[in-house]
Design a protein around this nucleic acid. Structure first.
Length: 915
RNA sequence: GGACGCUUAGCUCAGCUGGUUCAGAGCGUCGCCCUUACAAGGCGAAGGCCGCUGGUUCGAUCCCAGCAGCGUCCACCA
């Protein structure tokens, strides 16, 4: 048996075991009627992405759950895959084309899309490769991509079904338009930022009068697209103007004054310029006006910008071809020159920007496809409110409710080339085409001919679908939907979704809607969950992670350069160290302040565990021991043995409990504390006393065997957090009983019958005594090299017995050479003293004692004890406390009082004869 | 404007619907130790009116209200 290295070296170990696990097919999941399924779908990372600390947090937590459940015996599927990320990917490829001096238009659509596929092939798997470094146990053989054939079919099927139910419609509306990406984006893809801008007051002359209507606007350039000015119908100031015509400055057109309830009389001048093609509210005003206006007076929105937000031919010649911001300058200059600008005021308002490229969004009138969300949202809201889907932490339910009850229709068409082409065709028509044509033909497959005129001359809708239109199908499309597959029957619904709250609307909410809408037809094995109306939820639990921030609390961002590369961290500290640190630092739903040096926590912990294993292996050889198995739990056991067995079991229980409550952070702490403090600091140190002592060989073998067994069991507990390290140690411990992997061994549940209160109490007492001695040694600078004699005086014979019985532990842990009873009377001369439960301890130090230091030490104790005493006394003198508090609490306080009193007396007595 | 979260030691955070000597851990700092697993370690110590103000209660770090600061999300009146 070769010895382990002195420090843990993760690099080689990680590569080796990951390859082994994959070769052995341990990540694979297959429908298995003998087992209960447990399913997690990965939030598919963008193919443009590289691994970030956010992914590390996310995927570590998923892997912890997945490994835990797998060890618990579930048929565990972690479904991996990637997202095609429409805009992001198209941008990346366009950028590389620009580097070659060309662009997508020069290439043409088909070649461009082919080019993106090439790019995807080359770079799209980056994150997936990186996740392996982290130790993720996804079933890689099932890896999916949102644009692969099956998922594309799911997208088409979804579109057609929703269209059949009239939940998808097409129409001309104001949408959020990104002038850089040349596409519409959804309301949720706009980020608003506050900016210091201006508000301009502009005078519009009333035709045939000297009067002028003053409007206030933050976007003067859009006046070129004004089609009216609106006032509140009951605003006395302007009522006489309703129906009159104004002359639009610079353009010279006549526009009407109309009435609309939405005008706020208190804001600005109470008169609003109406630009229906470039402002969502104005668009609504226009619609309302047109509903009641006679046909000949209806307003036609006037679009003055092209797709790049550059002015078009519908504005006066002078202003054509200007970028919107240049147009603003030109318009303001001319308004000023023409005497139309009444005043300019500073004004703070919010400006929307594209979430992808940060370009200022232009409200833009265009033909788009929408999903009618209300009907979908109602059911999706209900399943969360009924608790069929639970959020962790549950405060996100409120956010979800708010969005769901104020939901707006979802613009799903994108004017991009990379994405799922909308499954809609239009008849371009032949000569004999009738008027029916031009209507959209929505179809799962390309139609041969127009159903109305028979023309074969069909043109597919140019647009693609929003990326999220494929992501919202992810939990079931990855399992084969719309086909009826064994996987779908077995693994759906999934169990836990782990994701960031930033995509609660984009993704989580929509998956719930989609799942409820279309998966109701999936046949279920008996007893599996279904909601009241027969539909199936896509997952039972949603775990919302926090956000990883830097040490200063700032968000990680490319521009700040504060995003650590997790791969570099893994190279430096090891994947286990990173995983454990992240899990330890991340309380449920709280943001995490992270910097690389924090991984020392995990690295040091890994090394600590490693060395505990090293110690056991070295001594296993000496004592010819091997892990005993459960049958060896009680052989030749003494306090330390019984204690570690008890502690192990309560730890396992608490750990499973924490994981069950999605409290990963607590679980990590439980493991850390048990392993470092209970197992290493106390148990191993106590173990040394026995295996280095003169026990019979058989006893040593039994004791070591049990220690190794407990250690093995602990490695199992730790495995979901630190898979590589635990596997390596496990295999080393098990050389005589080869095992394929720790990752398929049973996860210890913890046995309440093995938790022994009496043992823990005795051990607590021993620990307290040892701590007291250590305190004295530290405070009085008694070096470890100097052994001491311990004199004890106990009123409680049981405690005294425990102490004497475990003298050996004092020898090793407190460097006590001998324990003797001290009779009544004064404390021994030139000795330090300590009060412990049930008695006193004295340490004669001879000439070595620093009397001042000892006096200080005891005085400090006395101050503390006195404070405790008077607090308790005060409490007990308070009649309302004695009358109203529960009797057991009062009794407890009385006992405390006695104890403090006795401690004080002992301390005073010691102080009295300090010399 | 609305909603939510956070505020505990120098730093980062634990404190389980109020009572166990409850005020804790890690890092950092300061002592002492290269003790035959581990210096990425061991032992000890110093450091805090638990954000502020009220309320509920016999009793509040914990529950309630208000306030302040920080952060996030949503809405958005030109």
């Amino acid at each position: 048996m070769t010895e382990l290295a002195k420090t843990y070296n993760p690099g080689e170990v990680e590569q080796r075991w990951y390859a082994h696990w994959e070769r052995a097919g341990l990540f694979r999941a297959r429908p298995n009627p003998e087992k209960t399924p447990y399913t997690v779908v990965i939030p598919p990372p963008n193919i443009t992405g590289i691994l970030t600390m956010g992914h590390v947090l996310n995927n570590t937590i998923q892997d912890v759950f997945v490994r835990w459940k797998r060890m618990q015996g579930y048929e565990t599927l972690w479904m991996p895959g990637t997202d095609h990320a429409g805009i992001a990917t198209q941008n990346v490829v366009e950028k590389s084309l620009a580097g070659e001096g060309t662009n997508r238009h020069a290439l043409g659509r088909e070649k461009f899309v082919a080019r993106v596929w090439e790019w995807k092939k080359e770079y799209g798997g980056t994150i997936i490769r990186q996740l392996r470094r982290l130790g993720a146990t996804c079933d890689w053989e099932r890896e999916r991509f949102t644009m692969d054939e099956g998922l594309s079919r799911a997208v088409q099927e979804m579109f057609v079904r929703l269209h059949e139910k009239s939940l998808i419609y097409r129409g001309k509306y104001i949408v959020n338009w990104c002038p850089k990406d040349h596409t519409a984006i959804s309301d949720d893809e706009v980020n608003y930022h506050e900016v210091q801008g201006h508000i301009w007051h502009i005078a519009y002359p009333v035709t045939g009068s000297d009067e002028r209507a003053i409007v206030a606007t933050t976007r003067p350039e859009t006046m070129l697209g004004d089609t009216a000015v609106a006032v509140h119908p009951s605003d006395e100031r302007y009522r006489h103007l309703i129906g009159k015509t104004l002359t639009l400055p610079l353009a010279g057109r006549g526009i009407p004054v109309i009435a609309d309830e939405s005008v706020d009389v208190a804001f600005g001048t109470g008169m609003v310029k109406v630009t229906p093609a470039h402002d969502p509210n104005d668009f609504l005003i226009c619609q309302r006006y047109n509903e009641s206006a006679p046909v000949e007076r209806r307003m036609e929105p006037l679009s003055i910008f092209d797709v790049s937000a550059t002015t078009n031919d519908l504005v006066p010649e002078k202003y054509r071809g200007l970028d919107r911001f240049d147009a603003r300058k030109a318009v303001v200059a001319d308004l000023t020159a023409g005497g139309f600008l009444v005043k300019t005021e500073p004004h703070t308002h919010n400006v929307g920007r594209c979430y992808r490229c940060d370009t200022v969004i232009e409200p833009y009138l265009s033909d788009q496809w929408f999903v009618r969300m209300k009907p979908l949202a109602e059911r999706a809201l209900a399943v969360v409110q009924r608790g069929e889907i639970r959020f962790y932490p549950d405060r996100w339910v409120k956010t979800y409710e708010h969005w769901m009850t104020n939901i707006r229709d979802w613009c799903i068409s994108r004017q991009l080339w990379w994405g799922h082409r909308i499954p809609v065709w239009y008849c371009v028509g032949d000569d004999h085409c009738t008027l029916e044509c031009g209507k959209p033909i929505v179809s799962r497959t390309k139609p041969d001919a127009c159903p109305h005129c028979g023309s074969g001359n069909l043109r597919q809708d140019e647009d693609v679908l929003d990326t999220w239109f494929s992501s919202w199908l992810w939990p079931f499309s990855t399992l084969g939907w719309p086909d009826d597959t064994p996987e779908l029957r077995y693994f759906y619904p999934t169990d836990t979704l782990v994701t960031g709250p930033d995509i609660i609307f984009f993704w989580v909410a929509r998956m719930i809607m989609a799942g409820l809408e279309v998966t109701g037809g999936i046949p279920r094995p008996d007893g599996s969950p279904r909601t009241g109306d027969g539909s199936i939820i896509p997952f039972r639990n949603v775990y919302f992670t926090g956000i990883i921030r830097d040490a200063q609390g700032r968000k990680m961002s490319k521009s700040l350069g504060n995003s650590p590369d997790p791969i570099e961290v893994i190279d430096e500290y090891g994947a286990d160290a990173l995983r454990f640190t992240i899990a330890y630092l991340a309380p449920l739903g709280q943001d995490v302040l992270y910097s690389n040096d924090r991984c020392e926590l995990g690295r040091n912990f890994a090394n600590k565990i490693w060395n505990a294993g090293r110690f056991l292996l070295m001594n296993a050889r000496e004592t010819a021991a091997s892990p005993s198995g459960p049958e060896g739990l009680d052989a030749h056991s003494d306090l330390a043995d019984r204690w570690i067995v008890s502690r192990f079991n309560s730890t396992a229980i608490a750990l499973n409990d924490a994981l069950g409550k999605f409290d990963v952070n607590t679980a990590a702490r439980i493991l850390y504390d048990f392993l470092w403090h209970d197992f290493c600091d106390w148990f191993i140190e106590m173990l040394k006393g026995r295996i280095y002592g003169d026990e019979p060989a058989a006893v040593k073998t039994a004791v070591m065997g049990r220690a190794m067994f407990m250690y093995e069991e602990t490695l199992k507990l730790l495995h979901p957090f630190m898979p590589f390290l635990t596997e390596e140690l496990w295999q080393n411990l098990r050389r005589r009983r080869p095992s394929e992997s720790i990752m398929v061994d049973a996860y210890p549940a913890g046995d309440p019958a093995r938790v022994d209160r009496g043992t823990e109490r005795d051990m607590g007492f021993v620990q307290e005594c040892i701590n007291s001695i250590r305190n004295i040694r530290g405070e009085l600078s008694v070096p470890p090299s100097r052994e001491i004699t311990l004199l004890v005086r106990f009123t409680d014979p049981a405690m005294s017995g425990v102490l004497v019985k475990y003298e050996g532990y004092f020898r090793r842990l407190a460097r006590v050479s001998e324990i003797r009873k001290h009779g009544s009377g004064k404390k021994p001369p030139q000795s330090a003293s300590a009060v412990v439960p049930g008695g006193e301890m004295f340490i004669p130090l001879g000439g070595l004692i620093d009397l001042d230091a000892e006096r200080n030490r005891i005085e400090k104790e006395l101050v503390r004890a006195t404070a405790m005493f008077s607090n308790t006394e005060k409490k007990l003198r308070d009649t309302s406390f004695v009358d109203k508090a529960p009797p057991q609490i009062v009794e407890q306080e009385r006992k405390k009082l006695d104890s403090f009193k006795s401690t004080m007396e002992k301390l005073k007595s010691s102080l009295g004869n300090i010399g």
